[in-house]
Amino acid sequence: MSEISPSRRRFLMAIPLAGAGIAGVAFWKMLSGMSAGSFDPHDIHAPAAGRVIPDFDLPAQAPGEGFSSTDLRQQTKPVLINFFASWCIPCIAEMDALLSLKKEVEIWGIAYKDKPENAEGFITRAGNPYTRIASDREGRVAIDWGVSGVPESFLIAPGGHIIWHGAGGFDNGNTLNALKAVLAKVPA
């Protein structure tokens, strides 16, 4: 009774199936990406790379010496800035990776919203991967950097450009490999 031809009718009735199929494949990709660690739908992707580091001057965090944005800009080699805290479980998890990474790149730490004595205890217990350590008690400098949680790391080129940004611990192989790929391209 309809003027729609049977083949077109058939085509129309298959649209829901096609839609569900596409969604299913996408979900499959997301789930497998999530279990492989390559896809995180909650990654904020803060657009740090390419930006200049913000101005700051932070006090020292024992057992290290503090630093300011000027100190960072004056470096002649790339520096990895690592935001950490003693209360953060993933920070403990990435310590081993940081300690071995120390051989390839200089790491400067910033203790995020942490009591100095707690942060000091944490660093002494875990082994110190940091060349210099500053304390961001209020967490305000971190906001200027675009930090949303700890651990979070930034690779700074000489002159003060952020050339790489990673949220999440280096115990995740994907994060570590991403950093190493960037490091390989930068003349150390």
Binding site: W87, I89, S148, G149, V150, A167, G169
Partner: peptide
């Protein structure tokens, strides 16, 4: 912090 919250 993010991860901590995730655990929570």
């Amino acid at each position: 912090m993010t991860r901590f919250l995730r655990h929570l």
